[in-house]
Design a protein around this nucleic acid. Structure first.
Lengths: 248, 248
DNA sequence: CATGTCGCCATGTGATCACATTTTCGCGGG
DNA sequence: CCCGCGAAAATGTGATCACATGGCGACATG
C-alpha cells in the first residue's frame, strides 16, 4: 500500500514520471511507514505498471535521499537517528533562511496574499488533524516563498531535506495534542510586508526550530530512551508551547 | 566519449553502480563538455554494457541535478547561467561553512595531517595544470573535512552542488594563467589546529568566494557579454589575485 | 539447546525487444 | 537560398524474460 493505489489513466506524463510523483508525494506526506515493504514488483502491481518505471523512480528517490539502498539491495525509508535529525534541521535552517532572503526582492503583494491563503489552509488542516494537507500546505508555503524568483538551485536541496524529514514529521505530528496558535508563518509574512530581510531570516529559523525541530527532537530522544519515556516527553512538549507552526 | 571508455572487468559492484560512479566522476571533474551527446545507447556501447544500467544511472544523475532532463527527453549537462551560478555559490557557502563547523569537534590530528597531504596534492596538480587531480583532490579535501564525524546529511547536498559546478569549474580553470599561492586551505587548517570555529567558517567561505566564485563569476559574465570579452576578463582575473585556491 | 547446510522462494539486475517519440535527411517548390 | 513535407534513422520508454542474489524455513548434527 506504499503506492496508495493505481495510477490515473489519462495522464500525459510518462509512466516513470507519474510513478515518481506518486512516490515522492507519499514519502513527503509520511504516508509510507518505516519498515513497510517497498519492492519493485509489489509497487508495480499496485500502480498497474510494469517494473521498469518503478525501478527508475526508486533509483531517483535513492539519489534524492528520500529512500535508502540497503546492503541486500532493497530500498527502505531511512531510519531517523538523533545525529541525522540534527543534521537535517541544521541544513534546513541554513538553506531556507538563505533561500528566503534571496527570494525577498521577488516577493510581490500578490504572492504575499497567496502565502496568507496557504497559511490559512495549514491552520485549518492542523485543527482538523488532516496530516496530508498539513504537511503538504506547509511545504507549499515554503516552496512558494523560496521559488518567488522562479528557478532556484536551492529548491531541489530543500526538497530533498523535506523528503527525508517527511515520514518522521508525520509521526511527530501524531504526538501533538491540544490546539494553540503561535504562528511563525505570520511573523515571516510580516517581515515580507516590511521588506525586512533579517526579520525574515529569524522568522524562518524560528519556524523550523520551534516547530519540527522541537517536537521531533522530543520524539527522537524519547525513542532513544525507550517507549516509556514517550508519554513524559509528550506531556512536556504539550505544556511548553503553542503547536500549530511548531510542526514546520 | 562521455563515458571515457569501457568498465573494468573485475569490479564487484553492480553494473549500475559502476556506471553511476564513472559518470559521476566524469561530471565532477568536468570531463564531459556541455553539448556532448549523452545517449543511452551511445554510453552503453562505450561502457560495454546494456542500456539498463545506463538508464538507471542517468535517472540518478538527473535527480542529483548533475544532469538535466530536457523536453525532448534527452539528458544534458545543464547550462550555467549567472543566476544559477550565484545560487550554487551561495548554497555552497552556507552549507559548507556549517558542515565544517559541525565537523570541528571530530577532527583529529591524524585527519589534519591527511588534509595537509591532500592540500599538497592540490597545489602540485594546480602547478602542473592537471585538472582531473586538481578538482578531484580539492573535492577530496572538502569531503574529508566535512565527513570527519562519519555520515553527515550535509555531504550529499554538498556533493550535488559540486557535481553541478564541476563542468563549469574545469572551464574556469582553463582561463587561469600564472602561478601564485594564496592559500585559503592553509587558513582553514590553521583554524582547525587552533580549534577556532569562527576562523574556520571564515576560511571556508573565503576559499569559495576567492576561488571558484571569483574566477567563475568573471567567466560567466564574460560569456554573457560575448566571446570578445573573454580576453579582457581573463587578463583582469590574472592580474588581481593569486590563483591556486581560488578555484576551490 | 545452538549451529550449519540445503533447498525453495522472493526479489533485484541486466539483457533484449517492440513500440513511441524525436531528429535528421532528402526532395521539391517558391 | 529558405521552407515545408515525408520518410528514414536515432533515441527513449515500457514490457518481459532469464539469471543472480538474498532471506527464510526445514532438517541434520554436535
Amino acid at each position: 500500500m506504499a503506492a496508495t493505489g493505481p495510477l490515473a489513466d489519462d495522464d500525459a506524463r510518462t509512466l516513470h514520471q507519474q510513478v515518481l510523483a506518486r512516490l515522492r508525494e507519499n514519502i513527503l506526506l509520511g504516508r509510507i511507514e518505516p519498515g513497510q515493504a517497498l519492492t519493485i514488483r509489489g509497487l508495480a502491481a499496485e500502480l498497474g505498471v510494469s517494473a521498469m518505471p518503478v525501478r527508475e523512480a526508486l533509483r531517483q528517490l535513492v539519489a534524492e535521499r528520500a529512500l535508502e539502498l540497503m546492503d541486500n539491495r532493497r530500498v527502505r525509508i531511512p531510519p531517523m537517528t538523533i545525529e541525522r535529525f540534527d543534521d537535517l534541521i541544521a541544513a534546513r535552517v541554513v538553506l531556507e533562511a538563505e533561500a528566503a532572503a534571496r527570494a525577498m526582492p521577488y516577493v510581490s503583494e500578490a504572492l504575499i496574499t497567496r502565502l496568507e491563503a496557504e497559511d490559512a489552509v495549514i491552520n485549518e488542516a492542523a485543527a482538523a488533524r488532516d496530516y496530508d494537507t498539513w504537511i503538504g500546505a506547509n511545504f507549499g508555503f515554503h516552496a512558494m516563498l523560496y521559488g518567488a524568483a522562479g528557478q532556484s538551485a536551492f529548491l531541489p536541496l530543500i526538497e530533498s531535506l523535506w523528503l527525508q524529514i517527511g515520514p518522521f514529521l508525520r509521526r511527530a505530528m501524531r504526538t501533538i495534542s491540544g490546539h494553540y496558535t503561535v504562528d511563525r508563518h505570520s511573523e515571516a509574512l510580516a517581515a515580507l510586508r516590511r521588506r525586512d530581510t533579517m526579520a525574515l531570516r529569524i522568522a524562518i529559523e524560528a519556524d523550523i526550530r520551534d516547530g519540527i525541530a522541537h517536537i521531533g527532537s522530543t520524539l527522537i530522544r524519547s525513542e532513544a530512551m525507550g517507549a516509556n519515556a514517550v508519554r513524559a516527553a509528550h506531556r512536556q512538549a504539550q505544556g511548553e508551547r503553542g503547536l500549530v507552526d511548531e510542526v514546520n
